[in-house]
Design a protein around this nucleic acid. Structure first.
Ligand code: FES
Ligand code: FES
Lengths: 144, 144
DNA sequence: CATAAATAGGATAAATTTATCCGAAATAAG
DNA sequence: CTTATTTCGGATAAATTTATCCTATTTATG
C-alpha cells in the first residue's frame, strides 16, 4: 500500500512526536533503532519531511529532530504520506490509466473510488497526536 | 496500490473475458495493444495467470488465451490480484510490522483495518463478468 | 577561535520490479 | 511428416526503489 520510505517516515514521525511531547530531540540513529529501519535511509526520509515542514531539524551539537509541541495535534497522517509518496495514492487510477477520470473511467473506477475515498478520509482524519498517544500508552508498537 | 504487473494482469484478463464471451481467442500482441502494456512483460503475467488457472492458454497455431465462458461470472477480482501480487495487500501491516496482529498492533492498525477490509470486500465482490460488461457496453475503458 | 557533535546532501551500491530477447515445446493444418 | 504459428520459460537488461558511505555544513560549548 505505502512504500517502505513512507512506512519508515510515518513511524519516524510518530517516534519524534512522542519524544518532542517530552521535550527530547532524537537522532536518526535513535529513531532507526526504535522503529527498526536502516539508519542512513531513514535519515534521507527525514530530510524530505523537514523540507515539507512536517518535522524540524536542529543541526550541530545537541541537535536532532523535533516537532513543535503545539503542532503535534494539527499534523495529519495525510501530510506525512503526501510528503513522501505524493498524492498518486489518492488521485491515481487503480488500473494505471493516465488519469482517473469520471468521464473516461477504467472498469473498476466506481468501486475503487469508494476504497480510495475511505483511505483518504482515514489519512486526513488521523492526527499525529492520536498515533503518538497510542505509543505512549503502550497500546500500539512501532516495531516487530 | 497495485503493482504494474497486477494492473496489466487485471486489464488483460478483462480483455480476454470480453473476447471469450464472443468465442475469440486473443494473443499477447493483441492484448498488449488493447490495454497499452509492454508485450513480453504482459506475456509473462499471462503465464502466471495460466498457472493459477485464472485464464486458459492454447498453444500452437490458432492458439491464444481464453476463459471458459461459463467461468467468467465466477472469477473474482481478488483471484487475479492474488495470483499476481499475493495476499500481502489483505494481510500485511500498513506500517510494515512483520505481521498485522491485533495483539501487537501498529499505531494505525484499527483505522487501517477498516480500509483494508473495504478493499478486500471490493475485490471479493467484483466479478470478471461485471468488469467485462462495462467494456462491452462502452462505459469503461482499458487504456488512455 | 577551536573542537566536537550533529544534520545535509551527493555519490554509489544492492535489491526489486519492470521490461526485453530468444530458443524450446506444442499444436493445427496441409 | 513438415511447416507455420503460437505459448512457455530461461537469460538478460533497464528502471526504480531501497540502502550505504563519505564529506560538507552547521552549531553549541569551552
Ligand atoms: S479511472 Fe481508474 S480508478 Fe478512476
Ligand atoms: S498491525 Fe499494522 S495494520 Fe495491523
Amino acid at each position: 500500500m505505502f512504500s517502505k520510505a513512507c512506512e519508515y517516515g510515518i513511524k519516524a514521525t510518530i517516534f519524534i512526536a512522542v519524544n518532542s511531547s517530552e521535550n527530547r530531540r532524537v537522532s536518526p540513529k535513535e529513531i532507526s533503532e526504535e522503529i527498526d529501519s536502516p539508519q542512513a535511509f531513514t535519515a534521507k526520509i527525514l530530510q524530505a519531511l523537514v523540507r515539507h515542514k512536517v518535522v524540524k531539524s536542529v543541526r550541530g551539537a545537541y541537535g536532532g529532530f523535533e516537532i513543535d509541541k503545539g503542532k503535534i495535534a494539527t499534523i495529519k497522517l495525510s501530510q506525512i504520506v503526501f510528503a513522501i509518496d505524493g498524492d498518486q495514492i489518492y488521485k491515481g487510477c487503480g488500473l494505471g490509466l493516465h488519469t482517473c477520470n469520471e468521464k473516461h473511467p477504467c472498469p473498476v473506477h466506481d468501486k475503487f473510488m469508494v476504497v480510495r475515498e475511505e483511505l483518504r478520509d482515514m489519512l486526513e482524519n488521523t492526527t499525529l497526536e492520536q498515533l503518538a498517544l497510542d505509543i505512549k500508552s503502550g497500546v500500539a508498537f512501532l516495531k516487530i
